[in-house]
Design a protein around this nucleic acid. Structure first.
Lengths: 202, 202
DNA sequence: GTTTTGATGGTATGGTTGTACCACAAAAGT
DNA sequence: ACTTTTGTGGTACAACCATACCATCAAAAC
C-alpha cells in the first residue's frame, strides 16, 4: 500500500469542504466538483472516500448534527449553571440563535437539510425527529424541576412550555438567518419570554 | 394574431403547475420541463410566458405570498372575531400551521424559497422582510389594545410578545411540516401559550 | 525483488438542464 | 389580398452533472 492514509481524517476534510461550500452557495449548488475543488482534491478522491453523492450528503449531515449537539453540550457546560434549570434551559435555547459564522453556517445547512428531507426520500428516514424529541423531553424535565421548586410561573405546563420554547428558538433562529432580526434582538426576545416563565419574586 | 390568449390566465395556470410540482418533489427539482409537463404545455410555452426560469420562479413566489396573505385575511374575517384582539391574533397565528393540503404545500414552498433566499442573490432582494415586519406590527398593535383593556397578563410586552408569537407559530408550523408534530398538537401548543398571555379572569 | 494492493489522477459517458433558434399557423390590420 | 403580429411546437446546443472506467505509482507484504 502507498501512503497509508487515515480515512477518517480524509473524510472529515472533505465534509468540511462540503460544509464551507454549502454555507457559501447553498446546499443545492453543492456538486462533486465543487466539493473536490473546495477541498483541493480531485473528484476521483471524493468518489473514492464516499462512493456516491448521496452517501456524501448523508455523512455530511450526520457529522453536522453531531457537531451541533457538541456545541449545545459545550455551551451548557461552559455556562457553569450547574443544575440551575433556568440557566441550563437558556443555554440550550441560545445555541439555536446563529451568532458566530460557524453557528450561522451550521444552522443554515441544517435547515436546508431539514426542508430537503420533506420531499427527499433518502433524507426522510434520517434522524430529524429523534433529536428534537429528545431535546423537548430534556427541557420538559428541567421545567418540571423548576416548577416543583416554585421557580416557574404557575401557569407554566412543563411539557407544553418545552414545545413552545423549542418552537420559539427555532423560529427566532430562522428569522436571524433570513436577516429579519439581529442576533441581539433574538436573544433579547428569548430572554423576555424566559423572564415570563421564570418570574423574579420581588 | 391567433387565438388571442389571456396572458394572465396562462401565467397563473403555469405557476399553478409549478406549485404542484414543487409541493410534490421539492422546489429544487423544479425544471422548465417538469413545469411544462405538469401544466400540459410545451416547454416553449413556458419560455414564451416567462422568458427565463429565474423570472418564472420569482413570479411564482410573488403569487404564492399573495395567496398566503389572502388566506390569512380570509381566516381573520371568517373567524367573526370582530375586533376581539385575542380572536384576531389566534386566527393569524393558526394560519401558520399547515392543516389542509393547500396550506401544507404553500408553507413548504414558502419555506424553501425563504431558505433559498439566504444564498441566492436574485431571491435575496425580494420581500422576505416586509411581510413579517408588517405582521409583527399588526400583532403588537392588537396586543397593545388588549393590554389597555386589561385583558393580557401584566408581564406581557406587546412588541416583544408579538415577536415571540410570530417565532413560535413559525417554529410550530415548521415542525408540523417536518412531521415532528401533528397539526392538532401544534394548535394545542399555540392555544396554551395564548392562554398564558390572555389569562381568563376567574 | 517481486507481487500485491491502497491511493490517486485523468477522462469518457450517458443523461439532464436552461435557453436559443427555426418553423408555422392563424388572426388582425391594412 | 397581403402583410404583420402573436401564439405555439419542435429541436438543437452548450454546459454541467454523477458516475464508471482506465491508468499509474508507491509502499507494504512476502
Amino acid at each position: 500500500m502507498p501512503k497509508l492514509v487515515d480515512h477518517e481524517e480524509r473524510r472529515a476534510h472533505i465534509v468540511d469542504a462540503l460544509l464551507r461550500s454549502a454555507a457559501r452557495d447553498g446546499l443545492h449548488s453543492v456538486t462533486m466538483r465543487s466539493v473536490a475543488t473546495e477541498a483541493g482534491v480531485s473528484v476521483r478522491l471524493v468518489q473514492y472516500y464516499f462512493d456516491t453523492k448521496e452517501k456524501l450528503l448523508l455523512d455530511a449531515m450526520t457529522r453536522l448534527t453531531g457537531r451541533m449537539g457538541e456545541r449545545v453540550r459545550h455551551r451548557v457546560r461552559a455556562t457553569g449553571a450547574g443544575t440551575d434549570p433556568r440557566g441550563i434551559i437558556e443555554a440550550v435555547l441560545l445555541e439555536a440563535v446563529p451568532t458566530d459564522d460557524e453557528s450561522r453556517a451550521f444552522h443554515l445547512i441544517h435547515t436546508e437539510y431539514a426542508v430537503l428531507s420533506v420531499t427527499d426520500r433518502a433524507l426522510a428516514d434520517q434522524a430529524f425527529l429523534a433529536a428534537p424529541n429528545e431535546m423537548e423531553a430534556f427541557l420538559a424535565a428541567h421545567l418540571a424541576t423548576a416548577r416543583r421548586a416554585g421557580d416557574t410561573d404557575p401557569t407554566v405546563d412543563p411539557h407544553r412550555e418545552a414545545a413552545v420554547l423549542l418552537a420559539t428558538s427555532a423560529g427566532l433562529g430562522l428569522s436571524v438567518l433570513l436577516g429579519q432580526r439581529t442576533p441581539e434582538e433574538a436573544i433579547a426576545t428569548l430572554r423576555y419570554h424566559l423572564d415570563r416563565a421564570f418570574p423574579t419574586t420581588d
